[in-house]
Nucleic acid binder design. Structure first.
Lengths: 110, 110
DNA sequence: ATCGCATATCGTCGATATACGATAAGTCCC
DNA sequence: GGGACTTATCGTATATCGACGATATGCGAT
């Protein structure tokens, strides 16, 4: 790791969030959590074509990125999205894309 | 690649796009390209704290994800965002986040 | 206390990502 | 053609990812 800083905290943070989302299994999990009114416990494993331990790792990745919260609920664990974190990511992404469409029609070059 | 399918093409495609964006250097590059009316040639390397070959690899990653176009322009190469591809990614991300805010106030559990 | 279930963690493996320097490939100018 | 410049690619080293099975942990029921 050759001097990992050199980029802004903001960019590193956004990159981490994007990395957390950048996997089909984790996208599926996020969608699953988003489309529920209730928190989801065990069903996540059943809905993915992956081993239980693998799903647990993906959930851990999402938790570490702060996008998902998990609370122990009896003998199982209950997951739901962190709405604020997700909103923050959406904000950051929107910010990224903002300048875009002003300069879109400049196809004089490429 | 242990049976990579099992997820939808859509999700794999979105995951690839997110992965392409999920690095501070590539975020920086995208922002750089977004904030320009003109295409950018050599200056990208100067604006990043990375070796020229590394930057070239990041640009290649963005090109392979279809987010960036590069055309040889004289003795240098000219890069710009692909507005349609970026718009498509934004669409896909918005779709991901859409269901979110209806079910946000369900914090009865987590 | 013990059994059974749900989840987490560990250890491991192959694949991929990230970085660099060195070198190739292309273009312009002389 | 020969040099100077810009970008791409190669080779390589290290780190991280993604998957799995095996095992640990925690809880509820018996």
């Amino acid at each position: 790791m050759p001097v990992t800083s050199a980029f802004s905290d903001t960019d590193r943070h956004l990159a981490d969030a994007l990395k957390a989302l950048a996997h089909p299994a984790r996208l599926t999990i996020v969608r699953l959590l988003a489309n529920r009114d209730e928190c989801v416990c065990g069903e996540i494993v059943d809905d993915l074509p992956l081993a239980q331990s693998t799903v647990s790792q993906h959930l851990k990745a999402l938790k570490e990125a702060g996008l998902v919260r998990g609370t122990v609920e009896g003998r199982s664990t209950c997951y739901c999205l962190d709405p604020e974190a997700m909103a923050a990511v959406k904000e950051a992404i929107d910010g990224l894309f903002d300048g875009l469409f002003l300069s879109a029609p400049n196809d004089n070059c490429c």
